[in-house]
Design a binder for these strands. Structure first.
Length: 487
DNA sequence: AAAAAAT
């Protein structure tokens, strides 16, 4: 079994689907695709599928559904997603899969005119992908009939069952009278939604590819501790330190997202914001710009946390604590996709760092902790880079044209100054980074004092010391959420 | 706090 690699052609898929898959360069299914395709009578059961970020879940549910579908006048498949951008992306995938079979996709999301969507439906779309609000709008207008839907997919399903979506989901579900299967897909399915899964799905079969399938091994995790009020400066230092090719920076609020993007852009980093207060045109434009360039920074709220597949994202950088471990998993999962490696960086104040350690305690991911790189660290890094540059220059053939001049310079009394000047021209031109070390250490000392412990003049990287004796109890009580009434 | 329907 391990000798023969499973191929798409091993499954009973229609020739035109095989062709479409091959045309898109896919030969072997990912584990989740193999598991779903290989499940006996998959179409006659409800499903809960948990598979890691970037593992090809969209194709995993699309393939068996579209393979079974006959192109016809009414929609039979409805995919619900938590954000408009994700719905559009998923629709794009289903589009190329279904087109050879004569199926078209209606994308029912808010923020855009409803007219074209109604035309798409009238023309006989077989597949419908949308966000809850606009789908309900169509149901109420009578432009979409829930009674023809046979397959319901809850993409990022744990989030779709969240309180914020519950009412809308309920109102869609109760109109679906001909439903044959409900499939829930996500990288995370926290215990808090498991009872909801039992409520909305009928004896679902569970595909959990392994206990730790939520954690994508291709992502390495770092946490940098920084002064709480110098988060932006710390971000600049991290960008200079990590030199990401393409990065998504996550912020907690829309205002912070806009602010950070603006400041980064003014500092010369190619950065663009995306958040829910922007018009849909601007949101699509920002994402399109990011997708189509090979460099750049997208500064986002959690609107971009789930599902979005952008190739070549080398870094995910989170400013502050994620709201829960699921948010951390999904944000991090924007990198390290389809077998590529990625780096997930979290920037935390000393107090947040302590809460983060509580948050990830039962989580199998290995996070490496560091104090945020300081200006001095950045200078050392730049000197290393310059030295590498000099080695490269020495090996270049056109250097010999200047051999005589070089020797003459070395004879001069001010040879050091001249060389320094030349190096300055070679050096990285841009932000120099900020000095944050003193402020960070002062804040760490304060944080430690507040917790009734002696300050430690060394770095924040003392994880093992948090473990012994009764400090474990301290950390546990510190990470417990405050009672609601306390505000 | 964010997201999702316009209004």
């Amino acid at each position: 079994m391990s000798i023969n690699t499973v191929r798409f052609s091993d499954f009973d898929l229609k020739p035109s689907i095989q062709e479409a898959i091959a045309q898109h360069g896919f030969e072997t299914p990912t584990p989740v695709q193999e598991a779903v395709l290989g499940l006996p009578d998959v179409l006659s059961t409800d499903l809960v599928v948990q598979a890691k970020t970037g593992s090809g879940k969209t194709l995993a549910f699309s393939l068996p559904l579209i393979n079974d579908l006959v192109a016809g006048g009414v929609p039979r498949i409805l995919v619900l997603a938590p954000t408009r951008e994700l719905a559009q992306q998923t629709a794009g995938e289903m589009e190329w899969l279904g087109r050879p079979l004569g199926m078209s996709v209606a994308v029912l999301v808010g923020g855009v005119p409803i007219g074209p969507q109604i035309s798409q439906l009238r023309r006989g779309a077989s597949l419908v992908v949308g966000t809850p609000g606009r789908v309900i709008d169509h149901l109420e207008r009578g432009t979409l009939n829930a009674a023809t839907i046979e397959s319901l997919i809850l993409d990022e399903g744990d989030h779709m069952l969240d309180l914020g979506f519950r009412d809308e989901l309920e109102s869609i579900l109760k109109r679906m009278t001909a439903i044959k299967r409900t499939w829930l897909f996500s990288a995370t399915i926290p215990d808090s939604v498991r009872y909801l899964v039992r409520r909305y799905l009928k004896d679902p079969r569970k595909l959990t590819l392994s206990v730790d399938e939520t954690v994508n091994d291709d992502i390495s995790h770092k946490a940098f501790v920084c002064p709480s009020r110098r988060r932006y400066e710390a971000l600049v230092n991290v960008l200079l330190w990590e030199r990401p090719e393409r990065a998504i920076v996550f912020c907690a609020t829309k205002v912070e997202t806009a602010d950070v993007a603006l400041r980064l852009a003014q500092a010369g980093f190619g950065a663009h914001p995306i958040h829910g207060d922007m018009g849909q045109r601007e949101r699509n434009h920002a994402l399109e710009m990011f997708r189509s360039s090979t460099t750049g920074i997208l500064v986002a709220t959690d609107v971009a946390a789930r599902g979005l597949d952008v190739t070549g994202v080398t870094h995910v950088i989170q400013l502050g604590l994620p709201s829960n471990i699921e948010a951390y998993v999904h944000r991090s999962g924007r990198t390290g996709r389809a077998g590529h490696s990625g780096i997930s960086v979290t920037l935390l104040s000393p107090v947040e760092a302590r809460r983060m350690k509580g948050l990830v305690r039962s989580f199998s991911v290995q996070i490496n902790w560091f104090p945020v790189p300081d200006r001095g660290d950045l200078e050392k890094l730049e000197h290393l880079r310059l030295n590498e540059e000099l080695d490269k220059l020495a090996a270049l053939p056109d250097g010999k044209d200047y051999g005589e001049l070089a020797r003459a310079i070395l004879e001069r009394d001010d040879a050091v100054e001249v060389t320094a000047g030349l190096l300055a021209r070679l050096a990285f031109e841009g932000p120099r980074g900020y000095s944050l070390k003193a402020e960070l250490e002062a804040e760490q000392d304060r944080a430690n004092r507040d917790r009734g412990r002696r300050p430690d003049p060394r770095s924040s990287n003392r994880r093992s010391e948090y473990r012994g004796d009764r400090s474990r109890n301290f950390a546990a009580s510190g990470s417990r959420p405050r009672p609601r009434g306390a505000r």
